[in-house]
């Protein structure tokens, strides 16, 4: 099993990156790793770009993932995925939510949103492991598109098992336990379904 894991989560304020990274750092702890997480609050929450770092390892020093050293880039929005492509190490996993949130600079017509080919091309230079998941559609079908972040966590758990965690104790239930501790009781069932749907999106 891999000894250290560097995750970079990115998206737009309000998409649930904070919850997702809180889950991820605690999953690491539950799996027996030392773990750290770093994020920035404040102005960036006002519809701006947000990112969060999570690291698991035997002993973790820096809470920040070194540029070009992320094993996993978990992007909740496509433009933010592209903005952070340089964070990924060669051969790392890019897991990208297909949601598009146009920034005002695009709405105003001053700048253009990158097309899918440009995004894919930038990632192809870094890694063959690029996975797209339509978190909003999957979560929406379950009744609440805001659970897209948990759909993505489900997808991430499946990808990690496939690539690096085969045979570890870190099964879906361990993730679900951490998630359930962090969402309101009335949303536990929805989040469980969202997590499972995210896993199936990868497994099939």
């Amino acid at each position: 099993m891999k000894a250290t894991f560097n995750f970079l989560l990115c998206g737009v304020g309000g998409q649930g990156t904070v919850l997702a990274s809180a889950v991820l750092v605690n999953v690491g702890l539950a799996a027996g790793f030392d773990a750290k997480q770093a994020e920035v609050h404040g102005m960036s929450q006002r519809g701006g770009s947000v990112s969060s770092h999570v690291r698991w390892g035997r002993k973790v020093y820096s809470p920040i993932v070194e540029l070009g050293e992320a094993d996993v880039l978990l992007a909740f929005e496509k433009l933010e995925a592209l903005r952070n492509v340089g964070a990924l190490r060669p051969g790392g996993i890019a897991l990208i939510n297909t949601q598009v949130i146009e920034p005002l600079t695009v709405i105003s017509g001053d700048q253009t949103y990158p097309d899918d080919e440009a995004i894919q091309a930038a990632f192809t230079q870094v890694t063959p492991h690029v996975q797209y998941v339509d978190g909003e559609r999957i979560a929406g079908a379950l009744g609440n598109p805001r659970a897209a972040n948990v759909v993505l966590l489900g997808a991430l758990s499946a990808l990690l098992e496939e690539e690096w965690l085969a045979g570890s104790d870190l099964d879906a239930e361990a993730w679900l336990k951490v998630i359930s501790e962090r969402v309101p009781p009335k949303h536990v069932e929805l989040n469980r379904k969202a997590f499972e749907a995210g896993r199936s999106a990868i497994e099939k």
Partner: peptide, 22 residues
Amino acid sequence: PVASTGPEAQSGALPGRPPVLC
């Protein structure tokens, strides 16, 4: 030596996403 390409170098100039009034 460390890789000299930052994210800007790899992805070009992208539309900014400054914080805005909600």
